[in-house]
Design a protein around this nucleic acid. Structure first.
Lengths: 351, 351
DNA sequence: TTGAAAGCGCTAACAT
DNA sequence: ATGTTAGCGCTTTCAA
């Protein structure tokens, strides 16, 4: 019934050595003779010893935890995107023997906003922040000398590494596919346009069209939605379809949610997708596979982004590599059923 | 540049009291005069003091963490169900000032299976286990005298509380709705039939039919799939449709994934849903809203289940309430587009 | 290569 | 009501 865990002291006694020697063995440090190491190892096995995280932490000033900060709006049910990223960090962290402590903060930083408890308690060895966030939170982390990695967001600040989506590549692939399928009137709908990822998608849209010698028509663009939810896609698509002169034969949405909203509008207004209008999303969230028609979209490796961030962070924590860097993850166009080939100018591999 | 955090000692000095008095104030314990309390509070504010989790933990033998154990197969992309539950625990835990440490274990317990590190390190104050799990993991937790709450799983063991779905109620509502809509030939498809939740859904299906005086026909039932994924739903529906004599006009699936698979089969075989066959799922996962037709299903409050588990666990940890209990969460039928009214025997509210 | 000893920063008896 | 003191179980100098 007594369930006292064994301590390093007992191991030392059993092995006939000092506790500091046991500590050396436990932490796999050199300068321990093979025989002593074995004696200690055996004692550890027999007594079933495992060092307590708290004791270790107090003495070494480490926590074994990684903090993960997200703004509240990014961590709701409607936003599976960052949730996936978070789960990606969980998996990777485990491999490095860290646990992830999650917290959310308000999207706007107010006067008496609470600081994430894990920062106050010195309960994390490094921090990951995902998505657009108020600059002050970044400072809050850096002021505590904690390694920091951002995901899907960037700031120009010494020491802040980022894991980013190659948005330009994704849009390029989407536009390229559409033009090669014979589309010329290609619209774009977006929202939350100041978000770095959304902004670069929009910029890439305009640039790719230009490169292909296609005029960028303002009446095919709607980017003034404040958010990128399904409803916003509905409204934005409505605008584009109603305002535009020569109607678009294809619409690129800033993300899947908006693409789904766009499809809802199109269908509800009697347009056939993809017969009348092709739609391409971005992110490849789970729903993209379930909607009808199945959504052609740009796949973003969300879990992988979380995993990469953890790897970078651990490198910093363990001083293996402390270079400030941006990592761009590649993306791919996933062809499904929401896009139609008008006239194939080149052979298009359809899976 | 020096970033030494202030300690309780410095606060004591500044306030002109002993560190134990500061501790009393910090932990909001009684027996401190109002004036002293204020002096200390001021000193804490001025020095920006916040106790370190590690120091606190070592002295008080608490970690401030809750462990969450899931089998690997329950924590994959294909399984948004338990992920939602996990996220529910995250939210609720934060309210109680706990962090959640997540870990997965193999579905089958092997000889040298690794024990969750947070158990070995004494880094959690209590544990939540979600889904069907090998009994030995439950023992592993109990042997360490840690409070334990299960979600969507139960064992008859002193001290193990559970948060469960009212599966019988859900199926009852589904069958009831179908019969009142004029359906008599109602099939059931399932898999992983030993899972408590699946089993009770199947049992409730048979029982409800009987209660309504409808014969339980074996040729309308397929429950021998090993899993409850989309593909299994496809196969099970195929069996039921091909083997059965008088074809079913409605199929109840053990969960949404199988329902989606069933719809895929039906559509691919020329059946119209819901015109020829109505389909009802269980769980109400996100995809249910996106599939076409939108899935009528039994809504399970997943996040809430996670939250309830945390509440129960915290009660146990803090000795507020240590009763072993089962909590059943209610469920509701969500009417969407995958079910059809054949002949309304009663007024059916369709939202 | 090993051991002794001094903390790490707090909590929790126990005294007063 | 407040202070003294002894740990909690490790890591980490520093000596030997």
């Amino acid at each position: 019934m007594k369930n006292k865990k064994t301590t390093i002291k007992e191991v030392a006694k059993k092995a006939g050595v000092s506790i500091s020697t046991v500590s050396l063995v436990v932490n796999n440090l050199p300068y321990v003779s093979a025989e002593v190491r074995e004696k200690v190892t055996n004692a550890i096995k027999e007594l079933n010893f495992y060092p307590r995280r708290n004791a270790r932490g107090l003495a070494s000033k480490t926590s074994g935890n990684i903090g993960f900060i997200l703004t509240e709006n990014h961590f709701s049910q409607a936003e599976p995107f960052y949730t996936k990223i978070f789960l990606g960090t969980e998996f990777e962290a485990r491999k490095h023997r860290y646990y992830v402590l999650l917290t959310t903060v308000a999207p706007t930083r107010t006067e008496n906003e609470e600081i994430p408890r894990f920062l106050l308690e010195e309960n994390v060895d490094g921090v990951i922040i995902a998505g657009k966030i108020h600059q002050s939170w970044i400072e809050e982390v850096q002021n505590r000398n904690l390694p920091l990695v951002l995901i899907d967001f960037e700031v120009s600040r010494q020491g802040v590494s980022s894991v980013l989506i190659d948005n330009a590549e994704g849009i390029h692939k989407a536009v390229d596919y559409l033009t090669k399928s014979g589309h010329r009137e290609i619209g774009f709908i977006g929202g939350d346009i100041k978000h770095p990822s959304i902004k670069s998608r929009f910029t890439a849209y305009k640039q790719t069209l230009s490169e292909k010698g296609i005029e960028v028509r303002q009446d095919l663009i709607s980017i003034d939605q404040t958010d990128t939810a399904i409803e916003n896609g509905f409204v934005a698509a409505k605008k584009v379809m109603e305002i535009s002169g020569k109607k678009p034969t294809a619409i690129i949405a800033a993300n899947d949610a908006m693409a789904i909203g766009a499809i809802r509008f199109l269908k509800s207004s009697g347009y056939m997708v993809p017969k009348d209008v092709s739609v391409i999303g971005f992110d490849n969230v789970d729903a993209a596979e379930h909607v009808s028609p199945k959504l052609t979209t740009v796949h973003v490796p969300k879990e992988e982004m979380g995993a990469i961030a953890v790897k970078r962070l651990v490198e910093k924590i363990q001083k293996i590599d402390n270079v400030t860097m941006k990592t761009f993850v590649g993306v791919d166009l996933v062809l499904r059923d929401s896009t139609k080939v008008l006239s194939s100018k080149e052979v298009i591999p359809v899976k």
